[in-house]
Amino acid sequence: MSTLLTYVAISDGKIKRSSLEVLSHCKSIADAGGMACEAVIIDENATSYTDDVQKYGASKIYTVEGDAFKQHQNGSLLKALTKVNEVAQPSLIAFASTEGTKDVLGALAAQLKAGVVADVSSFNFDGTKVTAQRPMMAAKIMGNVNVTGNPVLVSVRSGSYDLKENPATAEVVSVDVTVESGDLRATLREIISATGDTIDLNEAEAIVAAGRGVKDEEAKALISELASVLNAGIGASRALTESGVYDPSLQIGQTGKVVSPQLYIAVGISGAIQHTAGMANSKVIVAINKDADAPIFEIADYGIVGDLYKILPTFIEEIKKIKN
């Protein structure tokens, strides 16, 4: 029987929601095709997440634990995934397309001599072949892709699938992986976490994104207030991360993060293709811009033409009222 194995990523002590989206989808494929749906967790405390992961239908969960997996390092992750592949012998390994995944996917494919397709927006698997759709040419075109291999590796854009609970009682299998300095070679000196305890954009249900129109502290304060009222993550266009107004990790677009939240509010963003490539799949898009001809209005569900300094205070007050 073919097995679909989903890599469930943990970041800052939390399961990445996007991994569970992928697991939910793999469970549907497995059920439809009479295949097994399994998961792997690689983290210093991997076992503590198994209860949450089995809710999404994994019948077996491989755990790899140890200090070496406290922080993301490609050498240790590669070694662990290679070992788990050996033990689980899956036909397909599915990943959420996080920065951590992007860091190991190519190397893992070379190591396992696997077929691979990255950053898909949908996929299916018949036991031997993956058929997938992925955005190409700055997300202006959709490519239909066929991939074979044993296994096939697939990474999936966040927001491509809905979470679907499917409780199962999973068998937990602990896999021993010892990481030695020779496996790492690279030294992780430190992680500069400028974003503090802000919300991870790939996981956020709502995002407030700032563009060139956000010029001063007053505008930044309005962005922060709107985000806090909505419990939203804050993102920014490339113009604002390059000029240092916002931290580079907040950049949304072809170069930065690709996001698809339920609600995306673009403030002072003109909507160049480099930016929209990273957010056009959001469920509901609101744009606030004083230029009535800004391209962002072509994709916005709700376009507000006006000065953000005049729009935002009332907008925030009204949302507060509704939320109460």
Binding site: E99, R185, A186, T187, I192, S193, T195, P248, S249
Partner: peptide, 11 residues
């Protein structure tokens, strides 16, 4: 640029 911050890596 990693998922939750910038990683300084020595190679």
């Amino acid at each position: 640029q990693g998922d939750s911050g910038q990683e300084m890596i020595e190679l």
